[in-house]
Computed example of a mutant assay.
Amino acid sequence: MGGPRRRHAISPDSPHPTSGDLADRHLVTSRRNDGPRYAAFDLDGTLLDAAGTAARDVVAGISRLRERGLLPVLITGRSLPSFRRLTDIGPLLALCHPEVLLEEGDLVLDRTEERHRPTTRIPPPVVERVRRDCADVVASCDGRLLASTRRAAVAYAVAYGLPRDAVDIGTPTGPTTRLVVFGDAPPELPGTARHLLRAFGATLLTATGRGKAVGLAALLAARFGEGDLSRVVAFGDGDNDAGLLAAARLGIAVQGSSPAARAAARLRLDEPLGAYLAATDLPERGWAGVP
């Protein structure tokens, strides 16, 4: 799977907005009050069901938010190959900002230009050490999934519900944003954070200090000049959403969320997301009642 052409790095110093960016910028700057301007959504378990589809009432609810002046932004833990497997969410994507934050913000996909770019990298010496010391490793390298062995490729495909041919066999040759180590990972890896994937007997290594809140804040700063997440309402359901739910001005844990997500959120839904989106008056009432 060949990587797409690189696009420029998005930064506050050198933004090159697409037509979608300009439309979205008009949407958020047209709001005169100090209320919410952005609605950040996790995908799996929040917007999408187990089959990878979004219910009609959820799509209608997001359309309602956008009509009332909120810009929907997608941020997910999915890899690029995994995201591209979603084939039935066109109506949902059409309502959202064209840049999708993948790998919890470590990779940004511009759907308008079909280009992607990493926003961080694991230190190359760490990548080399892990590849040298561990038998079965899968690296996310500039959007590609590269396994050290066929066994690692199969294990990763099974763990993440991907076809085997979505994972290539090869050595990372560009920025590596994630490493999945099947078995024990080496201790003391500078510049990395580790997350145990107990269900798969694996360890996920990422660059330190990252997460959905960091990735979203960087995107909003670059594209819209936001200094923080004080204009964001965020929706999520999993442990990896907890940081975002805590950092947003209003974090909402959807029905069926994990204990960590519910603990981090200010609002916990006991009704389906579509029903909440159909009834909420959040854009109109601003932050009234939000601590």
Rank of each mutant, 00 (worst) to 15 (best):
S14E: 13
S230N: 13
A155N: 02
R231I: 00
G170R: 04
D88T: 13
S140K: 00
T176D: 01
G183C: 09
T46F: 07
A185R: 01
S14V: 12
R164V: 15
V181I: 11
V28L: 05
G77H: 09
L216N: 07
P190S: 06
Y156I: 10
E99W: 05
P81A: 08
L65V: 00
L47R: 04
A147Y: 10
V59F: 01
S230C: 10
R231H: 14
S82V: 00
A23T: 11
L27N: 04
C96G: 04
G243N: 03
Y160W: 14
S14C: 09
P175T: 10
T46C: 12
D49R: 03
A166N: 02
S258C: 07
P187I: 00
E284V: 11
P118I: 03
A55T: 08
V233K: 06
L109W: 14
R115D: 01
R32S: 15
T119Y: 06
G211A: 11
G289A: 05
T206K: 15
A288W: 07
I252T: 09
R68D: 06
R231Q: 13
I89F: 05
K212Y: 09
Y38L: 11
L27H: 06
G286W: 04
D44E: 13
V254D: 08
V214R: 15
D44S: 06
R6L: 13
P172S: 12
R266S: 14
L197K: 03
L92C: 09
S258Y: 02
A253R: 01
T280Q: 08
P187V: 00
A54Q: 02
S82W: 01
C96K: 00
L146Y: 07
L86Y: 08
M1Q: 10
P187N: 00
E271M: 14
D228L: 08
L245N: 05
T29R: 14
A202Q: 05
R121I: 01
A147T: 01
G209S: 10
A51R: 12
G61Q: 07
A222F: 05
L220V: 11
A55W: 01
L47I: 03
G90M: 03
G256M: 01
A185L: 08
A147C: 10
G174D: 15
T192S: 07
D228W: 10
V73Y: 03
S230E: 13
G105K: 12
L267F: 07
V233W: 03
S11M: 03
L86V: 09
I169G: 03
D241W: 04
R144S: 14
R115P: 02
A234G: 12
L74V: 12
L220F: 11
R178F: 11
D106G: 15
L43A: 10
F224R: 01
I62L: 14
R285L: 07
A39D: 02
D88R: 12
D184K: 05
V167M: 05
A51I: 00
A159N: 07
A279G: 09
A221T: 13
G209I: 08
V232S: 08
A278F: 07
D165S: 15
T29Y: 10
G236T: 08
L267T: 06
A263S: 14
L245Y: 09
H97C: 03
A94C: 02
P72V: 08
R194T: 14
P283R: 11
R151T: 13
G61P: 02
A135D: 15
L250N: 02
P72I: 09
I122C: 09
I75R: 04
A23D: 13
A218Q: 12
G105S: 09
P12M: 09
I89H: 03
D13A: 14
